[in-house]
């Protein structure tokens, strides 16, 4: 979570709010912030750190491990309509790549701003080629998008 806190300004610029969730109490969250996270990111954690002691929230999102009594590393991108656009779930020993979350948010924001008239191909990042689905593009993606150059 320190990686998310460190990049929080980037998220703010994109208009994204963060909620972190674990089974720890809100009191333990405070102590973790005060004694470790704030030292790692040189500031206090700027977002809500939710407590899900019984795993009820994790169960709703399919990321609660009943045997271990902990949440898996589940990450969800939720749009302004409350719809889940993307999810990623990792087992505990490997961390997420934060820049990939940002890339996906930017891509979904682009699609939303164009009301779906443009879509973002593999590896898309801001400034890269988008595709405009329609009859003319069927069977012709190979003419406009090169997986070696455009990815």
């Amino acid at each position: 979570m320190s990686a998310v806190a460190a990049q929080y300004d980037t998220l703010q610029k994109l208009g994204v709010e963060v909620i972190s969730v674990s089974v720890d109490s809100q009191f333990v969250h405070k102590v973790w912030n005060d004694n470790e996270l704030s030292k790692m990111v040189k500031k206090d954690i700027p977002f809500h750190m939710a407590s899900d002691g019984a795993g009820n929230v994790g169960k709703l999102f399919g990321v609660y491990d009943e045997n271990a009594g902990v949440e898996l590393r589940g990450r969800f991108i939720i749009d302004p309509d409350g719809v889940i656009q993307a999810m990623e779930v990792l087992t505990p020993p490997v961390g997420r790549k934060f820049s990939e979350s940002i890339r996906q948010i930017q891509a979904y924001q682009h699609v939303r701003s164009k009301k779906g008239a443009e879509v973002c191909p593999a590896g898309w990042e801001p400034g890269k080629k988008v595709l405009k689905p329609g009859p003319d593009l069927v069977g012709n993606v190979w003419k406009v998008w090169d997986p070696f150059k455009d990815h």
Binding site: V21, L72, Q109
Partner: peptide, 14 residues
């Protein structure tokens, strides 16, 4: 948080 983008992150523990 309706009307905003939300990044919801679960993690194993503090």
């Amino acid at each position: 948080f309706a009307g905003k983008w939300v990044l919801l992150c679960f993690y194993p523990g503090d």
